[in-house]
């Protein structure tokens, strides 16, 4: 009932506008949006990504020992490792007094201080990590832990711009662009990180 009423009312409204008075759909080109993203930036997208991800308080790790230091900061706890990155991460986490888990128990989401999942993509222009439904084995595993680490490897697509990444969403049911740690400035405009999502957002490339 509501549906047909609403459509009828909308149609009445749109038909009352004379065809020549209607605004045509303007087209726009990628260049219109990228004016401040100069061509030399394209040369090394990883470097651009790094700078911009760090600028939004993300962390970038390119060195195994630094990664291991982070793991060691939570001795005796559970480390969630997405089955999709297990092969790369397991050898680095072995013998570290951590319980490596490949399933994420939703009844105990706070038992995992750290998780590692796959970066489906990164966006240089905005310093963004992309996680996709089909490349993340558990949505909550990438959200609930205080420290969320995404592994960048050869499966990770590197996009120059936000537009490039949006043009490649395909039919994935749920894609998240992550640009830094979870944050708020609701209380007196003061920046606090780690509101509901991770307080540490790390991008790992080894």
């Amino acid at each position: 009932m509501s549906r047909s009423n609403i459509f009828q009312s909308i149609q009445q409204a749109t038909q009352s506008i004379p065809a020549e008075a209607k605004t045509p759909l303007p087209d726009w080109k990628p260049g219109d949006l990228q004016s401040a993203f100069t061509p030399q930036d394209q040369a090394d997208l990883w470097e651009v990504f790094k700078d911009r991800f760090i600028a939004v308080n993300g962390k970038v790790i390119e060195d195994t020992s630094e990664f291991q230091d982070i793991l060691q900061s939570e001795p005796g706890s559970k480390l969630y490792v997405d089955p999709l990155v297990f092969q790369s991460i397991q050898p680095l986490a072995e013998g570290m007094n951590l319980e490596i888990c490949q399933t994420f128990d939703v009844d105990h989401v706070d038992d995992y201080p750290i998780s590692v999942t796959l970066a489906a993509g990164i966006i240089a222009e905005t310093g963004t990590v992309i996680i996709k439904e089909n490349q993340t084995s558990s949505r909550l595993s990438a959200l609930a832990p205080w420290t969320h680490i995404t592994l960048v490897d050869k499966r990770t697509t590197v996009y120059a711009t936000l537009l490039d990444a949006i043009s490649d969403l395909a039919d994935d049911p749920y894609v998240v662009f992550i640009t830094g740690p979870s944050k708020t400035a609701d209380v007196e405009g003061i920046l606090i990180e780690g509101v509901h999502g991770p307080g540490e957002q790390i991008c790992l490339r080894i």
């Binding site: 439904e133 969403l169 998240v176 662009f177 992550i178 979870s182």
Partner: peptide
Amino acid sequence: TGQQLTVYTQFLNAPKSADQPDG
């Protein structure tokens, strides 16, 4: 908010996929 992009920009297209446990 003067950000280049909001921290979490998400695109929801459908119910969760069959082998996804969450959602």
